[in-house]
Every structure is written in C-alpha cells, then in structure tokens.
Nucleic acid binder design. Structure first.
Lengths: 229, 229
DNA sequence: ACTTTAAATACGATTATTCGTAGTTTTTAA
DNA sequence: TTAAAAACTACGAATAATCGTATTTAAAGT
C-alpha cells in the first residue's frame, strides 16, 4: 500500500509551496520558498535538507528543489484538503472568499482523516474547484490542470473567461470581488499601455484598468471567436 | 482590552485538560494530566513550569495546578471551539458522534479566528450543547454548568434524563449509541448490584445493565416525582 | 513514629523549527 | 574575463515539546 507517511504541518506547508513553484517555474528555488513561506533563508536550507533525507524532494544546489513522487502525492493531498476547506468556509459558513484562503491554511492540517475529507467532498457536492477557481485534486491524486492563459499575456482584442485567481491574497481578492472580476466573468482585452502600464479590458459592459502585476495572477480561458486556431 | 494572548496548540490542550480536572477534583494533579494528555510525567513538570511563568496556571507542588483567570479564559475559549467543532462535524458533515470528539481535538486549534467561530455558531443555530450534551460556553466566556447527578450515584427507584456524556471516548460513545442511551432519554434506576456490580436501569421499556465505570461518565438530570424535595 | 508506596521533581538528552550572521558559490554584466 | 550582485550554504544558537531514569517528597498504613 502507498502509505503516504504523515508529515508535520510545517512540512505540509513546504510541500504545498514547492508544488506551486514547481508548476510555475519548473523548480522551487530556496529564495522563492523563503519569501513564500515567510521564513529566513537559513531555515529553508535546514528544512530542505531534512526533507531530502525523507525522500520528499530532490535538491540541486543553485537550481532549486523538485518533488519526488512521494512528496508530490502528499502535496496534492494537502492541496485537496486546502481547497475543500475553502469551499466549506465560503459555501457553508458563508465566509468571505477573500478570507477563506488564510483560514484554510490552518484547517487543511486539521482535517487529515480520510473519512472526513470524503464526507466534506460529498456535502459540498463534489466541487471541481475552490472558490477562486483553482482545481481540487481527486481523492486518488489526479489534478486537472487546464490549459489557461495568463491575463497579462492576452493581446488587445482577445476574449476570454476569468477562470482562476492564482494568488489568493486577501487584499487582492477583496479588490477583485469589489469590482466584480471573479471567475466566470467574460472579458475582452482592449489595450495594453506601454512601459508595463495597465491593461484595459471590458467586462459586463464596463471598462477596467488593471496593473500588470494583478493581471499576472488571473488565468483566463481564451475564447476563439469565428473559427479561431 | 483583555487580550488573551495566543498560546500554542499544545498549551491549549493542557489548559483544556486542566479545566476539566479542576472542575472534577478542585485541582489538576500532574499524574492525572500525564494520563489524560498521554505524555510522560516529566513532560508535564516541564510544561507546567513554563505555563506558570506565562501566568496561565498556579502550581502548588504535590497539590496540583489551578487555572489563573487568564488561563481559564483561554481554556473556556478552547472548549467553545471544541464543542462547536463537534457540532459542525455531526450536524453538517454527518460524522458519527463517536468520532467527532477526536477530530474536533485537532479542529479546535485551527478555527481560532473570532469571525469564523461566530459564523459557525450562527450557522449551527447557536447550539447550547455539544452532541454529547456538554455545554458550549458563550462568546464572552460564560459556561452554564447545570447541577446534575452522576448516574452511578442514583439510588434504585430514582428517575432522570440522560443529559451529558462526560468521557467522550469513541468506543464508549459507539456502545452507548448502539444501545440507545443518549442524551434526552428517560431512565429509572432499578437496582445496584453489590461489590461494585452493575447498575440495572430501565429506559424506553427496556432493561439495561451498565458497569459502574460507564455509569460514572453519564450525567443525568434527576426527576423528582410527586413533589420531590 | 516509622516504613513502605505512590506521586512528583530534577536532570540529561533528543528532535523539530526557527533565527541571524558570516562565508561561499554561481550568475550577470561590464 | 573579471568584478559585483545575487543566491545559497554553514554554523552557532534559541525555544518548544518530548522522552527516560534517577532522586526526592508526601501520604498512608502499621
């Protein structure tokens, strides 16, 4: 049996962070991890070393770390618990989606029992994504990473549907909710100002100007109009 | 402002245990704590010392520890979170009441945010007790400890209503649920066998024989028939 | 009052997680 | 290709939580 031996909440956090950085950049650099996990660089080095001993990751100095199969399995499990927790918070407890992420960071470590997770999944109606549009892995570790475009990469004229907010920061989420740019909304890019200036887009018959940094956290599903390629 | 400074999950567990032992025996002895928390005696001594430094408890060597006002405030808060968590598990996630307690032991430390607790309370319909009948403290630390009798102390002929199961052990709870002796059930003690033998009682037109140890974990509200004192 | 036993403490040690500073190594840019 | 900058590691140290094995102290029984 594949007994994903239990790791501490701390290591769960590390694995989760590594998973995300690996997705984005191919590997997780220690400096990026330090920033993401809000700990000192030396701490990362120490922990990384012990994680490698436990066969959770592979570390190539100056290149970054990558998950082993074992590490990835646990990471995905944590992500499943995290996103189901977020759903619990927003759908059942009616907590604001901007606060859900941070609270779920604690909850995800508390609901490790298989039965609870399954029951939670059922009560929530087996949701496919978290409230911010990020996919919820299945019980056996499948995760459907759809092919999406980063909003900031769309060119003027292109259309799409807001699908995922990948940076689940309370302030960003609150802002996006306040202006109505949430998953499911159709948008069309109108203009990209030069010198890394804002992106102007149209949605719900209104016009929006977003900074590039914000637009880089939003993934959209491109809509190919009139027989697009 | 009364800022109940945050303590670690471990200390929260200690405070919770001390609260319960203090209730029962006037003070929590280190040996009792060791048993209840499943750690070595030396560990208790160490932790107790650091808790005293933090002004959470008062320790009289060989006599036991007692909570300070500050410690009690935190303990009650933890108990509130614990019992609301149990309700979440049984009422919303439909988890068996015998499993709810142990899972709630982890959950209680994850839901420390005031907003979440309040929302949870509301969604659950502001329950007065946990699924096992134990009172849920109010937001500002009031806890209604009703005057109840221990089942084992009732004399033959006396009647009452099962109200609280104070020892929330999965096996015990499963057993009680299987025979139907849950909070709300009316009982009458029929007989108490000598030499610490079983207690025979009648409930729901059936006869039950319970060991004294089990009967000592069940609290009942006595029913005084025909103008009882 | 004295002795046995039970309870509690002292002490030494380990592991996990964290920090900060100092020193290397790699990359980048001139 | 060499110097500066950035990234990374080494090392020493602190704290929390835990253990086990003495040793000491209090309680109980004779």
């Amino acid at each position: 049996m594949l007994t994903t031996k239990d790791v501490s909440p701390t290591l769960e956090e590390y694995l989760e962070a590594i998973y995300k950085l690996e997705r984005k950049n191919g590997a997780a650099k220690t400096s990026e991890l330090a920033k993401m996990l809000n700990v000192a660089l030396g701490t990362i080095t120490n922990t990384i070393e012990s994680m490698e001993k436990q066969n959770l990751i592979k570390h190539k100095p100056y290149k970054g770390v990558n998950l082993t199969r074992k590490g990835r399995r646990i990471a995905i499990d944590v992500i499943r618990r995290h996103r189901l927790s977020e759903r619990l918070l927003t759908d059942i407890l009616k907590i604001d989606w901007s606060k859900a992420h941070n609270i779920a960071c604690k909850l995800e470590h508390a609901i490790s029992d298989r039965d609870i997770i399954r029951r939670l999944d059922e009560v929530l109606g087996k949701p496919k994504t978290c409230p911010h549009g990020n996919p919820i892995p299945s019980e056996d570790g499948e995760i459907l990473e759809e092919e999406l475009e980063v909003l900031v990469d769309l060119n003027p004229g292109e259309r799409g549907v807001i699908t995922r907010i990948v940076y689940e920061d309370p302030e960003l989420l609150e802002y996006l909710a306040s202006i109505g740019l949430v998953p499911g909304v159709n948008i069309q890019v109108k203009e990209k100002a030069p010198f890394d200036g804002p992106i102007t887009l149209k949605a719900m018959n209104r016009s929006y100007a977003l900074g590039r940094n914000i637009a880089s956290f939003i993934l959209v599903k491109k809509r190919h109009v009139r027989g697009g390629r």
